[in-house]
Design a protein around this nucleic acid. Structure first.
Lengths: 241, 241
DNA sequence: GAGTGGTCTAGACCACAAT
DNA sequence: TTGTGGTCTAGACCACTCT
């Protein structure tokens, strides 16, 4: 296998996996596009189909690819439905998942503050775009969201009116940023006065604060999102395994 | 493979998996015990080592087994550390995980109320055990917990003084109940007056409510737990993938 | 050295989708 | 019928652990 002697041993399929991952990061295949067949990839890399399979197995588990029996292996793609299932854990009290609507109420550009520098790994002076929006579930305002994006990643951004509901779709199609993982930190806090009217609640009411950092394929942090959720009629779902 | 004709097709390794799972449920092997080697299991079931491996792969991913290269495959076991990592998502603001202490302040037996009947799938009149305790992180009271257990599963329970800190270890070793999954529903609520003094907070302060239902290997719901967390110095961690 | 899990291969066959 | 992913096998060899 040519790798080496004891210390840095990496199984073949792991090495193949890195190579394939790099191709995805490089944009070798577009989201939604089919990869070459496992047999072809095997020939190309000089390994057996089983080894390719094991590499693709792991990457499929990581939501990088989607397999369709009889059709092929495809680069995964964000869609409204996928965003809903993978990155939206607010569920109605009766257990039903609801697709939120959004209304953008602010879009500004500024120098990153300390928190943004910390979370997005920016330097003092780096610029960010800030989006503030309200999300509606069943036509009721339920979530206030503050979103921060690094200008150096996203460049100039859309006009307020053009910002779509499902941002991760946009990041992927327009900015070549594929969000695959996010870490959320949850707290119960008092609703701020400035957000009270947006949610139709009293200032000081308990709301769920969700502090989310989303990272791209190459593990760069790309979006920081601070949400405040009215959990009277909804809850946040977490499955432990 | 003898299975059948198109409709109910189950791959061999899935069938093997069911058989092995049933053996674990039946207590064929104890927690911490080693299974026969993959080769031996292969002979026993009349399949290749690769097929056994694929079954064990999935079960290892489900935390039913733990593999140790060079040693064998073992039935997983709850331990304080494992409980901490798999079932305790409250993390200090600086990101460090802390093992909680507990103080039991109530242990009663009663007929299941509506919520308990619903969650634990009990009938009217079925008995439950209720435990109330306070959990400390770094010697500070942070969580109030209300735990409900079905008497028909756990029978008579320990004395208040004998209840250990990590319950899932106890369920497994004493009651043959292996908790592998749990679903948590999170909300932000006002701290109740009766719990205020326990956490050293004011009544009405925002706290994180965690409604957890834990299920056993055989998918029975076995424990319902309602927690109220002071998230001033801690947060709830959720990783989305 | 013996035993266990972990990797890798080459080849066969099955299930599914498209044509 | 063809091509794709999905399953299964038998055998080889590697890495790790214990004696």
């Amino acid at each position: 296998m040519g790798a080496s002697s004891g210390l840095n041993y990496q199984p073949l399929y792991k090495q193949i996996k890195s190579l394939i991952l790099q191709r995805v990061i490089d944009g070798n295949w577009s989201p939604g596009e089919a990869l070459p067949s496992e047999q072809q990839l095997g020939k190309e890399f000089g390994v057996s189909q089983g080894t390719i399979r094991k590499a693709l197995d792991e990457m499929t588990a990581e939501n990088i690819f989607i397999r369709k029996q009889g059709k092929g292996t495809f680069v995964s793609q964000h869609s409204a439905a996928r965003s809903l299932f993978h990155f939206f854990y607010v569920v109605s009290n009766d257990g039903k998942r609801v697709l939120p609507d959004s209304k953008v109420i602010g879009l500004t550009r500024a120098s990153a503050n300390k928190q943004e520098q910390n979370r997005l790994k920016l330097k003092a002076g780096d610029k960010v775009i800030r989006i503030k929006r309200v999300r509606f579930l069943n036509d009721k305002p339920v979530i206030v969201e503050l979103i921060s994006l690094a200008v150096k990643v996203f460049g100039d951004f859309l006009k307020k009116e053009e910002i779509p509901n499902t941002l991760y779709e946009l990041y992927e199609s327009q900015y070549d940023v594929k969000v695959l993982k996010a870490v959320e930190r949850l707290k119960a806090v008092k609703l701020k006065k400035e957000d009270a009217s947006l949610l139709g609640m009293k200032a000081g009411a308990p709301v769920l604060e969700i502090d989310r950092l989303a990272t791209a394929l190459d593990t760069r942090p790309v979006e920081w999102r601070l949400s405040f959720v009215d959990t009277s009629d909804y809850y946040y779902l977490s499955e432990l395994t």
